[in-house]
Nucleic acid binder design. Structure first.
Lengths: 108, 108
DNA sequence: TAAGGTGCATACCAAAAGGTAAGAATTGGA
DNA sequence: TCCAATTCTTACCTTTTGGTATGCACCTTA
C-alpha cells in the first residue's frame, strides 16, 4: 500500500492510517497518554508484535511520540502529537459512522 | 481484515472501507453517478479486476448501487446509496486532513 | 532459587490483498 | 471480414499484512 499520485486526500490519509490497527491505536491515545501494556489490553486482539510495529510506524509518521523512563521494570508512554490530534479529530466522524453501522448490522 | 468486537466505531468502519481502493472509489461517486469506464480513468492506478471487485463489495455492503442498461456496447452506472452518502460525509474531514498532510510531505 | 512483570526483538509461517494478462460477449462500423 | 468499444471474468502470481512462538534483559518479590 504505497502509491502516488492521488487526486484527493483520501489516498494519503489511508497510507498513514491504513491497515487493521493504526486508527484504533491512535484512537485509544485520544486525549490520553497510555503505556504499552495498557494499549495491549485496550486494543482487543492485537499481538505484541503488531502493536510495536504499528507504534513504530505511527511514530515515524509523526503522529505519536514515545517517552521512555529508565525504570525497572521498564516504563514507556505513548501519546499523540499535535498532528496525531488533528488526525483523531478528522477520524471522529468516521468513528461515529462506524458505530452506527455496527448497530445496524447487529455485530455484537 | 475481519474481527470483532470493537470498543469503538473505527473498527467496523475500516472493515467496510479498508484497503487501498474503496474509500477512493466511494469518494469519486460523491454526488455523481459514474460509469465503469469513468471510474477506471478517475481512480488512477487501479486495475479492472480490482475496480470490479471493490465495486461488488461496496454494493454488497449497501454503499453503492449499480444500474445496468441493456445496450450494446454495455453501459453500467454506479452511484452512492444514502448509506454511502452518509459515509462520504464522514470521510470528508479525513480527506481534508490527507490533503494537508500530502502538502506538508511534498508528495507531488 | 525461582518466578513474574515489562517492553521489546526475531524467525518463521499463513492468509489476505493486490497485480498482470488473457479472454468472453455483443453489435456497429470500416 | 475484422476490429473497436465496453463491462466483466478467470487464472496465476507476487507482495503485503498479520499471527504464533520464543527469547532477552532487568529487577522485585516470594
Amino acid at each position: 500500500m504505497a502509491e502516488k499520485p492521488y487526486n484527493c486526500g483520501i489516498g494519503p490519509a489511508f497510507e498513514v492510517i491504513g491497515g487493521k490497527w493504526k486508527a484504533v491505536i491512535l484512537w485509544e491515545l485520544n486525549n490520553q497518554t497510555r503505556r504499552f501494556g495498557e494499549l495491549k489490553r485496550l486494543v482487543v486482539g492485537i499481538s505484541e508484535k503488531m502493536l510495536i510495529q504499528q507504534l513504530r510506524e505511527l511514530e515515524e509518521d509523526g503522529l505519536i511520540s514515545r517517552k521512555m523512563f529508565n525504570e525497572i521494570p521498564p516504563r514507556v508512554e505513548y501519546s499523540t502529537t499535535s498532528l496525531g490530534d488533528s488526525l483523531n479529530i478528522a477520524l471522529a466522524p468516521l468513528a461515529d459512522w462506524g458505530g452506527n453501522y455496527a448497530k445496524l448490522h447487529d455485530k455484537k
